[in-house]
Structures are given as structure tokens and as C-alpha cells.
């Protein structure tokens, strides 16, 4: 680069881009531009808001779930008791299931925080809520007295039997040794239908609460809630995080993040989340440091769209 007139470099050299401009100027009013900008954008915002509004699809409660899909609710509750649900085997930060955390080679970022939001699905989602009832089911005592082995044996057997039953209907389950499990899940279903479970799971017996982790995990372990999301095109394999309900635009700026989840090798990787986040981190760093990257930074010179931006200048050289 002998002639400095055309340098693409970020460096300060002695070319025209590096020196204070000494050529001709035009009048410019910064404050006026700001005011005009605020007024024009304000009118746009008010106009578009009046025209299109914003969606507000009501949230889903455990009551709604238990009412609309009781078989799914009971099946999920049995899995929570058996410790076979997604949440039960999630790993950090909810519990310490061995081998559950997502690693990249030897790097295990997921375990960094430890179990900071402890979730014990059988107790937190089923047993403790049932114990808060004015008259807890009698079978609760039987569960409490049983060994861990008995508990998981009953719950797993019932969970399998439910999966095999026609329509997964608890009323059509084949006979078997399920211990107190059917009674417990049935009582939880009643509790949820009456709307009691929502409150108990959210505030854990306290007055205040802003933490919805447990309710959300329980809800997500079933198939009713993810099914609703899928019907709204919100699933991960449907560009989900980008989309808003209805026709309102969502977070379209997450397109690349969303895309990575849908292509190989990310799509089928067991540690897809970790891989996608790290990849996005690297790509963002590349964009940030783009002026330092040979080739990429020269694109504006090879594809000279800048001649359109500065067409007046180049015309009057």
C-alpha cells in the first residue's frame, strides 16, 4: 500500500481518513437533527402501535394444564416421582445428576455454578405440595415410609404402565404394583384442577415470590405446554426464540442463534446449547474485531457500495 489514499486499515496513517478534515464543509445542525429524529420516530412509534398493537397471549397455569390434559399431567407427575423427567436428570444448576451437564471437550461450564437452584422433582413438585393440603392423602405416609428403591420401583412401573395405556389414560392402566403412586398423582391432579398447586409451587408457603423456576420446570416436563408452543411456531426447530405469538415481529436479531440450533453438527449434538453459545461468542468476537481481520475488512473495497454513499463527493472530485 504505497498510495495512502485508499487504505482500508484501521490504523492511523497519513491518509485523508486519518487527518482532521481540512476540505470544504457544509452546514449541519446536530441538535436540529436530533429533535427531528425524535419527532419522526415518535410519530412512527405511535402510528405503528395504534395500527398493530402488541400481542398478550395469557400465560398457562398448572390448573389449565391439569384441566385440559389430565392424562399428560398424571404421566408427568409419575415421572417426577420416578426421577425420570427432564428436570429430574437436568444437572446443574438444578441438581447433580452425574454426566448430565453439557461439556465441550474437558470444559464443563455448566457445572461452574454448582447446584444453586436445587430442585428435587419428587419432593418439590409432588410430595411437599400434597403435604400442604388440609387433609393430605393417606397414601402420603406410605410413600414417606418406603425406601428409595421401593419408591422409584413403584413410580417407574406406573409411569411405564401409563405410557402403555390407551390414550395414556390413568383410568385404563393395567394392574400392577404401583404402591401409593396412582393415589398421589391422582390427588395432585385434583389439587392442580382446583388451582391450589399453582400457588403452592410458586411461593413455597411464603407470602412473597418472584421465582417461577419450579412451576416452569414442571410445566415444561409435560407435553401440553411444549405442544401449545409448537402450535404457535415457537419451538426450537421452528426458529422459536425469534418468533412472537401471532403476526407481531419478534426477536429477528436472534436469527443466527436460532439457525445454529437447526443445522448440523449442532442439531443432533447432546451438548448443542454449549456449542451454540460458544460459537455465537466466537462469531460476535469476529464481528467486533472485523477491522483487524484481513480479507473480511477488505470487502468494502472489493464490492464498492461506498461509491453510492459518497456519489456526490466522487462526482465533484
Amino acid at each position: 500500500m504505497t498510495r495512502k489514499t485508499n487504505s482500508i486499515s484501521w490504523r492511523k496513517t497519513d491518509d485523508a481518513a486519518s487527518r482532521p478534515w481540512t476540505g470544504s464543509v457544509r452546514e449541519y445542525d446536530l441538535i436540529k437533527e436530533l429533535i427531528i429524529g425524535v419527532v419522526v420516530v415518535g410519530l412512527l412509534v405511535l402510528g405503528v402501535s395504534a395500527l398493530f398493537g402488541s400481542p398478550d397471549e395469557p400465560s398457562v397455569s398448572l390448573k389449565a394444564w391439569a384441566t385440559a390434559a389430565p392424562a399428560d399431567f398424571v404421566g408427568t407427575a409419575a415421572k417426577e416421582l420416578a426421577g425420570t423427567s427432564d428436570s429430574a436428570g437436568y444437572g446443574p444448576p438444578y441438581n447433580s445428576t452425574p454426566g448430565a451437564s453439557q461439556t465441550i471437550g474437558p470444559v464443563d461450564l455448566q457445572s461452574l455454578s454448582g447446584v444453586r437452584l436445587p430442585v428435587d422433582t419428587a419432593n418439590d413438585f409432588v410430595i411437599v405440595p400434597l403435604a400442604t393440603l388440609p387433609s393430605p392423602p393417606a397414601d402420603l405416609a406410605r410413600w414417606m415410609a418406603a425406601t428409595d428403591q421401593q419408591r422409584s420401583g413403584w413410580a417407574a412401573a406406573y409411569s411405564d404402565a401409563l405410557a402403555a395405556a390407551p390414550d395414556n389414560d390413568p383410568a385404563k392402566v393395567a394392574d400392577g404394583d404401583y404402591g401409593p403412586v396412582p393415589a398421589l398423582t391422582g390427588a395432585l391432579l385434583d389439587m392442580a384442577r382446583q388451582g391450589n398447586l399453582d400457588g403452592v409451587l410458586q411461593n413455597g408457603g411464603n407470602f412473597y415470590n418472584t421465582d417461577y423456576t419450579r412451576s416452569l420446570l414442571f410445566l415444561g416436563d409435560g407435553s401440553y405446554f411444549p405442544g401449545l408452543a409448537a402450535s404457535q411456531h415457537l419451538s426450537g426447530d421452528q426458529w422459536g426464540v425469534m418468533n412472537e405469538t401471532g403476526d407481531t415481529p419478534g426477536q429477528s436479531w436472534l436469527w443466527l442463534f436460532s439457525l445454529l440450533y437447526q443445522v448440523e453438527p449442532f442439531k443432533s449434538a447432546p451438548n448443542a446449547d454449549a456449542l451454540v453459545v460458544v460459537t455465537m461468542f466466537v462469531l460476535t468476537a469476529l464481528l467486533t474485531l472485523l477491522p483487524f481481520i484481513p480479507g473480511l475488512r477488505s470487502l468494502p473495497r472489493w464490492i464498492p457500495l461506498h461509491r453510492l454513499v459518497w456519489k456526490d463527493y466522487y462526482r465533484n472530485r
Binding site: S113, L219, P226, L234, V241, V276, V277
Partner: peptide, 21 residues
């Protein structure tokens, strides 16, 4: 509903890199 679902989906990415807590 939208925030409920986004929270459920997005927790995995944040947990996978250890900041979800």
C-alpha cells in the same frame, strides 16, 4: 405465554455456560 415459553427454551443455553443461576 410468550415469556413463559421463551424462559423455558432459553434456560438451557444459559445453564449450559454456567450463568443460569
Amino acid at each position: 405465554f410468550d415469556s413463559q415459553w421463551i424462559a423455558f427454551e432459553a434456560k438451557d443455553a444459559l445453564n449450559a455456560v454456567g450463568v443460569g443461576a
